[in-house]
Design a protein around this nucleic acid. Structure first.
Lengths: 188, 188
DNA sequence: CCAACTGCTTGCAAAATAAAAGCAGTTTGG
DNA sequence: CCAAACTGCTTTTATTTTGCAAGCAGTTGG
């Protein structure tokens, strides 16, 4: 637990209150909460991969987060109010992690990061397709996707739009690229 | 130099080429370049504070970066093509750091971070005013500001818009808040 | 009842970060 | 012309963070 000490609920709280450092700059404060390598990747997996359990998050990401880091980040994100946790009724040990409204509203940051990375970094074709669609869809698509996340994570019922959801469209596009590439590889 | 090994130009280049890890996810790749506590703060100071020299960047930020970290990050950002460096004709030892187009296009990420931080974190009034204006101005204002940055950092001449620039408006608003708060403190 | 699975913790090594001092050269003010 | 201040960094050392592997108490399904 490194950043955002004012949000944690244990004894480090007291230390943080007297912590004289750090600026009140919004960008700096945001970086202190999610400005590490893993936090936003966890959020990404929850948003785009719909991973909600510890083990799903642990094994699901391409990048391979360590279990202790994951546990630490989940604590931090919980303390910061970005995610919430509830017991899974189907299994006494399982917890279900959900995005809060605050967490859902990280989507535009992720979308901008995805767009920038897509334009300037050596993104793989398979993993870049979602970024491309999000770029092309723009803020309107992001808002729609955020509404879908509110349904999934907050249980807020929205009027169902016609056609497949943004999440479904992203997933379908991704799997199409995967399938196409596999077919091409098979031919070669 | 931690992330983005494929961009550095020294021997670690070779290591990176054979580095089997890391995913081609655009969000992950972006985080590997600028996903640490300092890189985006340096960019922020270059964008909003117009800090272009090493010492300006070192002493200018509220957060107090260490000299070795700053030197390391400048190297990384240079290698990643986010900033460029040229000699200052007025001083043989000075270098002038500029944002590249790639660096300028980080603005929307910063703007989204600023907006999110402004909404959810304990931002100081003085440092929050810019975030508020950027939020209210939206992508259109961001684009205008990016054009101004292109003039300043890339030397691209744009047709001058009427009235004060976005940079000037942000700066004026900031200083007004500072002045108002100082006046209020004097009265109290 | 046992194997597989649950969310997480522990111990240890490696890497990143931070604070402080220092440094060779440059410029400036008197 | 010379000393003081300034230039962009580097070096050294200590602390913090990260990463890996193993483990653990409990739960579940067959």
């Amino acid at each position: 637990m490194r950043y955002c000490k004012q949000f944690v609920s244990d004894r480090s709280h007291e230390i943080s209150m007297s912590d004289p450092q750090r600026s009140g700059c919004p960008i700096n404060l945001t970086l202190e909460v999610v400005g590490d390598k893993w936090s936003l990747l966890i959020i990404r997996d929850m948003m785009f991969g719909n991973r909600r359990h510890y083990r799903e998050l642990l094994g699901g990401s391409q990048e391979g987060i360590s279990s202790n880091i994951l546990a630490d980040r989940l604590k931090t994100l919980l303390a910061a109010g970005i995610i919430s946790r509830q017991d899974d009724p189907s299994h006494k040990q399982k917890g279900i992690y959900s995005l809060t409204e605050q967490g859902i509203e990280l989507l535009p940051i992720l979308a901008q990061m995805a767009g920038w990375g897509y334009r300037y970094l050596p993104v793989s074709e398979e993993l870049g397709i979602r970024a491309r669609l999000l770029m092309e869809g723009g803020p309107k698509m992001w808002a729609e996707f955020m509404d879908e996340l509110r349904e999934i994570h907050l249980g807020v019922k929205m009027r169902k739009k016609a056609g497949p959801s943004v999440g479904e469209r992203l997933q379908a596009a991704y799997q199409k690229v995967v399938a196409d590439n596999k077919a091409a590889a098979g031919k070669a």
